[in-house]
Amino acid sequence: MTDSRIDYYAAKKHAHDHGDHGDHDHSHDDHAPVAGEDEGPPSEFAIMSRAMQEILEAKGVITAEQVTRRMEQFEEDFPYRGSRVVARAWTDPEFRKRLLDDGKAACTEMGVDLEADRLIAVENTPEVHNMIVCTLCSCYPRALLGMPPTWYKSRSYRSRVVFEPRAVLKEFGTELPDNVTVRVHDSNADMRYVVIPMRPQGTEGWSEDRLADILTRDTLVGVTVPRVRT
């Protein structure tokens, strides 16, 4: 535990927690992230990162505000975009077609700036289920979905999805019959991917907001399918 002295980490974390709203309803199957606590003394890498940042700030290469602003974007902005975009595709067939045709252009239409990400949307059908991975690092459409979950970055996910996707899906509680094609996408170069899941029965007449609620991050990466909860 950090002690009572003025502690950079504690002060920053305090300010951050008070700004954190966490009002997004994570679905059950999304395994909402366990709050990342900085317990105990900082690791060598935490110290290294902090030291690099301070040196660069002192040299005028970056400012603390720039880094803080970026943190806020990753926390408060990016993670909520994907659900909205795909919910629109569910309700608007012409938009869906444009999203499939050119993911980045379609997002721009909705005022979603994907920055450097080049998005390819892939659609699930009764015949095809799509699943995303990056075996070489952890490429992910961050400007659309926020930061990837820890499992996406794990060695197990990265190595196994490409050769045993169905076994990995099963670990997420997703089972697909053999007459459905599993189509794995390894994001190994310039493109980034998002899955357009199939819209489940029982969602007729739902608003985009309500639809976005069941389009959880996990469904957009393709490890689970959207569920209607009563």
Partner: peptide, 29 residues
């Protein structure tokens, strides 16, 4: 030039255990 290339899983992994229809796609220069 960057292409997306589609492969049949059973042709990538000789002992692939899923159905013959399963695919894997990625970008190749």
């Amino acid at each position: 030039v960057l292409y997306r290339v589609r492969f049949v899983q059973k042709e990538v992994w000789p002992r692939y255990r899923g159905p013959a229809r399963d695919l894997i796609e990625m970008e190749i220069f």
